[in-house]
Design a protein around this nucleic acid. Structure first.
Lengths: 150, 150
DNA sequence: TATTGTTATACTCTATAACTATA
DNA sequence: TATAGTTATAGAGTATAACAATA
């Protein structure tokens, strides 16, 4: 047996995977989320917590059901997150005005304060990420990504 | 208390999240992976199995360590995958020509046959996804995503 | 009958520590 | 001493079934 039969791989060729849109989208998402995880540690928020609080911020009175369908979370998996955020006194439940089954979610005053800071941090991170692109490229990227999943 | 105090949310406003590159990249990636999961069921391959087999296909003799660093998988989590693929007789281990600690991974003949079909299916899916964009947009999207994570 | 919110639970994915054999 | 591969295990994330209360 010669070395030619079982040659070692010096440099890995991943060009096949790198030509796939899904592969690149996943790598880009993971790259951003990695930094996001780090920056949000001071607020003790995971990306999903930030998404939930952000939707409550911009949609006061939103229900758990609406959060689930917007973020693609299953209801049983949201219960613990909402409970934890309520226990931290960042959000509070109020009866839904027209549906006795549902509860509207609202930020508390400390929750509003936290989210003002957290959204500023998120905006700074977004500026850094978008900074790798020109403003036009940045808008193009978001537009094309929306065309993929919408 | 009037209805104005606790108004119900009729239409959820997710425009804040939709302006974030990371959020859009994640949604796009999940959208593609969802279809990928479905199409690869006939081959009994998850996305990560396809990635592993594809890298072995284009890099015969690649080691576990190289697979891990290329795909961002931790070594303990790769062991089970490689064992399963070997048990299915899709891949085989061969001694590394120059490093007695490592094993080079190679496709078996059935593995080569499976991957010819699986990569054709993946190419079809890629064509469908890219079909939502013009060819120029498709190339632009991949180029911009690479600028984000590279 | 359908929907909201919930509990319990199982399964998958990811992460860490520690070991062996070899470099 | 460092690295490749492995084992065991813990934690996080995601999934389904079933229930009470309300529509």
């Amino acid at each position: 047996m010669t070395g030619k039969c079982v040659p070692a791989v010096e440099q890995v060729d991943s060009s096949y995977l790198e030509d796939l849109i899904g592969y690149n989208a996943r790598r880009a998402a993971l790259s951003v989320i990695e930094v996001f995880l780090d920056r949000m540690q001071v607020y003790n928020l995971r990306p999903v917590d930030f998404s939930v609080l952000s939707l409550i911020t911009h949609n006061p009175g939103i229900t758990s059901r609406q959060l689930c369908s917007t973020l693609g979370i299953l209801p049983p998996n949201l219960v613990g997150m909402v409970n934890a955020l309520e226990k931290r006194e960042l959000i509070m439940r109020q009866p839904h005005p027209r549906d006795g089954r549902a509860m509207g979610l609202h930020l508390t005053t400390p929750g509003q304060k936290l989210m003002r800071d957290a959204e500023r941090t998120a905006a700074e991170l977004e500026a850094e990420v978008a900074g790798r692109l020109t403003p036009t490229e940045s808008r193009t990227l978001i537009r094309l990504l929306k065309k993929i999943y919408q």
